[in-house]
Nucleic acid binder design. Structure first.
Lengths: 246, 246
DNA sequence: ACAAAAGTGTTGCATTTACACCCATGT
DNA sequence: ACATGGGTGTAAATGCAACACTTTTGT
């Protein structure tokens, strides 16, 4: 295999969203800078999962690669949402030190293409070869590396926008899920409360949400029916809409 | 003034949409490659308006700059919609020749950030210092330079998507417009027919479309009332919606 | 007077909203 | 038997889809 060369000015960053403990969470990676001589830790903080692209690789492939290396998952929802290229995006003090420590040129302008991904948190192994990854609830994200706070904000905006008009909420759940779980996903992502009966009526009209002959198990109450999403049916029945909001 | 240096691997391309002759059009620029020695024209084709960014410039500023240099317009609708970075995007034969002729490295990987812009075609001066720009109806676009056909396609998708949920159709019209003009814009962009009475009923509910005490002039029929869009009222009255399509 | 586009209302149907109680299961 | 969440229906208000004729102006 020919060794591939990394491009040093185009990178991708993935905002990996998961739904857990009734919250929307983001998968972040620890970044620790250790002083070479004293061996003391200078700082520890968190970054998005990201990497530079290979010269012969598309940005989509690079994003899938990052996602796979980090989570072991394939075939998950991934979408490009915005480019980040501010001239000062890597210019904070910590970030310059980090880049220098990493043998990189802190003055080289690096553009990063932001992707967001939705995964079912049940699937994921957080332990991986490349550093410790953690699920952090959106509400508890502190100051991240580089411009990653901004990237997360924009990803959330993109997610909210998209989930309102396309059926992607399912991607945050296991293949089989209950309607209450689905409703919770929408409530958490959109930050609104929804009426149970009305939500279910709406769902009822969507032919691509397939009720299964299967129920929840091991719950201390009436077990809920399980559903799954059929992309096939969705593609065949979707209509174009025309709103332009109030 | 300090001479600014151009970054040689990040560029922006603007898909400038205009509405004219009842069609959606794109502003394109002629590209002609002349053989240095024989002075013969090797080929002529069309490109989007675009340019590399300056090292101290944001991509948004670069896009506004391109737009201004080309149209003389300021304060127009402009939106980043996608990054284009395929490794082969500049590798067609014509494109390599062009880059070489232009003194650039045809093997350098260049990423381009796509923006789309909506302008009222009445405003624009197509003549400008940097080459001849032309309005080309979407339906008549042939093979463009680089990956610009793909960029146009994606821009159109982004526009259609956005115009369905946000009030941006007005941007393609003069400040004061009639309801029939507005309906035509929506019909042309979305490629559907709309019912006049239902369209006007819907409009009636949108408080941000302000009817003026002014009418069309110089038309050979009953003159229509003019309207204008109030972004103020829009921002104050907009509601968030929750659909997730059939 | 004619041509050309502006402007306007009704009806039947689908969707939204608001709202409260019984049911099935595990402990 | 009790706690927990699952599951269901109705009425009123609003929005949508389909449809045709009169009005105003310039020529």
């Amino acid at each position: 295999m020919i060794p591939r060369t990394l491009n040093d000015y185009i990178s991708v960053d993935c905002v990996i969203f998961g739904y857990n403990d009734n919250e929307l969470q983001v998968l972040l990676v620890e970044r620790t800078l250790t002083n070479e001589s004293t061996k003391e830790i200078e700082f520890t903080d968190l970054t998005l999962t990201g990497n530079h692209i290979y010269e012969d690789e598309t940005i989509e492939d690079a994003a899938y690669r990052v996602l796979f290396d980090r989570t072991g998952l394939d075939n998950v929802y991934l979408e490009q949402f915005k480019a980040f290229a501010h001239p000062d995006r890597l210019k904070k003090d910590k970030d310059r030190k980090w880049l220098i420590h990493d043998g990189r040129d802190p003055d080289k302008r690096i553009i990063s293409i932001g992707f967001f991904s939705l995964i079912s948190t049940r699937d994921i192994i957080v332990e991986s070869k490349c550093g410790i990854a953690k699920w952090i609830p959106l509400s508890e994200i502190g100051e991240l590396a580089f411009d990653h706070n901004q990237i997360v904000d924009e990803a959330l905006k993109a997610l909210r926008n998209k989930i309102k008009h396309e059926p992607i909420g399912f991607e945050l759940l296991p293949e089989k899920f209950t309607l209450t779980e689905l409703q919770n996903v929408y409530e958490v992502v959109l930050g609104t409360e929804l009426d149970k009966r009305n939500f279910r009526k709406k769902i009822g009209r969507m032919k691509y949400l397939i009720p299964l002959d299967e129920k929840q198990k091991g719950v201390a109450h009436k077990p809920a029916r399980l559903y799954m999403f059929s992309r096939d049916v969705y593609e065949k029945t979707k209509k174009e809409m025309f709103d332009f909001t109030v």
